[in-house]
């Protein structure tokens, strides 16, 4: 006969970690379900790995979803060449520790033409080194599904994003023509050349990500924790000044400040925040009282109204 069990009986007393609260458990279950469904339905899935906190959670969930097996698809890192040094070190450590298949791709055209955020401006730079590079890598791998860590709460144009987000053969996203998505029944049927972006973290919020990182003891890049670091103030953003390629402009001074990052991207385009939060507890506490959104530190969102939507239509993740 059907029977129900109280929640407490489900916890193995031999485990040292306390069980996840029902909220995080529900989000985790949903994400694992999506991972398994995509892995089963598509021929060549890949997981976009950006090394940030959301990617770290995504990686952890993928390991959980396929346990005791290996993750049955490679990780793809679009390396613009302008990531924080600590991000690349962290990436390589994760690949070694968890025995991951990593594909790292840099746009050869961008590298040859020496496209940099300083010389080409953030919009063109992002278009070439991220969007175009991503399209190249997806085409080269003939991937028919790509996991991403995007969340619907991140940005207005993401709020209507599906969990399976359909893309045309040239990787375009048509917000007017998305497939309806009912229950947790996902439509993975595509023609040759078409693909799907799958977002297991769609229903997670920034606080959920941090609480999950804490509960599951997930390793993240140390830049998320406050520390005294060299910075320079530019266009209202605090830029990390450790890379020799960053040339100081007239009037700019490099100084040491206690800072941390809420999001990680390319260092010249990612602003730090002044913060003393050097533990997960502090970060979560800071977040709960935060009055600005995490994308506030991202230069690319501020180019123009509807900026993210435009990038997405063109194939940006």
């Amino acid at each position: 006969m059907p029977h129900t069990l109280p929640e407490t009986e489900l916890h193995n007393p031999q485990s040292t970690k306390p069980p996840l609260d029902p909220h995080l458990k529900a989000l985790e279950n949903e994400a694992i379900h999506i991972f398994r469904e995509v892995a089963a339905e598509f021929e060549r899935p890949v997981m976009l790995y950006s090394i940030g906190k959301d990617s770290s959670v995504l990686l952890h969930l993928a390991r959980k979803a396929f346990y005791p097996g290996r993750i049955p698809f490679p990780l793809l890192h679009i390396d613009t060449g302008w990531k924080f040094r600590e991000m690349i070190a962290f990436r390589d450590e994760m690949v070694a520790r968890y025995d991951l298949d990593l594909v790292a791709h840099t746009n050869p055209r961008g590298a040859a033409e020496n496209v940099t955020p300083f010389t080409h401006g953030s919009a063109l730079y992002t278009d070439i080194m991220k969007t175009e590079a991503l399209r190249q890598a997806l085409d080269a791998g003939q991937y028919d599904a790509a996991f991403g860590g995007a969340r619907r709460d991140e940005e207005a144009s993401r709020a209507k994003e599906r969990i399976y987000s359909f893309r045309t053969p040239d990787h375009r996203w048509d917000p007017r023509n998305q497939r309806p998505e009912l229950w947790n029944v996902y439509n993975g049927m595509i023609r040759k050349g078409e693909s799907v972006r799958a977002f297991p973290l769609s229903n997670w919020t920034e606080v959920d990500i941090w609480r999950y990182i804490q509960a599951e003891e997930i390793p993240i890049v140390p830049l998320y924790f406050a520390e005294k670091r060299p910075v320079v103030e530019r266009d209202g953003m605090l830029i990390l000044a450790e890379d020799p390629r960053l040339e100081l402009l007239p009037g700019e001074v490099k100084r040491e400040e206690v800072i941390r990052f809420r999001t990680l991207g390319c260092f010249p385009l990612t602003g730090a925040i002044r913060s003393e939060a050097d533990t997960l507890d502090d970060i979560i506490a800071e977040l709960e009282t935060a009055t600005v959104s995490e994308r506030q530190g991202r230069a690319i969102d501020r180019d123009q109204a509807g900026s993210m939507e435009k990038k997405k239509r063109e194939g940006y993740f």
Binding site: E9, L10, N12, K25, N29, K64, A65, Y67
Partner: peptide
């Protein structure tokens, strides 16, 4: 019933 964290002694609706 196998999960990443532990071998569980039960699972209920919603559990992956």
């Amino acid at each position: 019933i196998v999960t990443f964290d532990l071998v569980r002694n039960a699972a209920v609706a919603g559990d992956a």
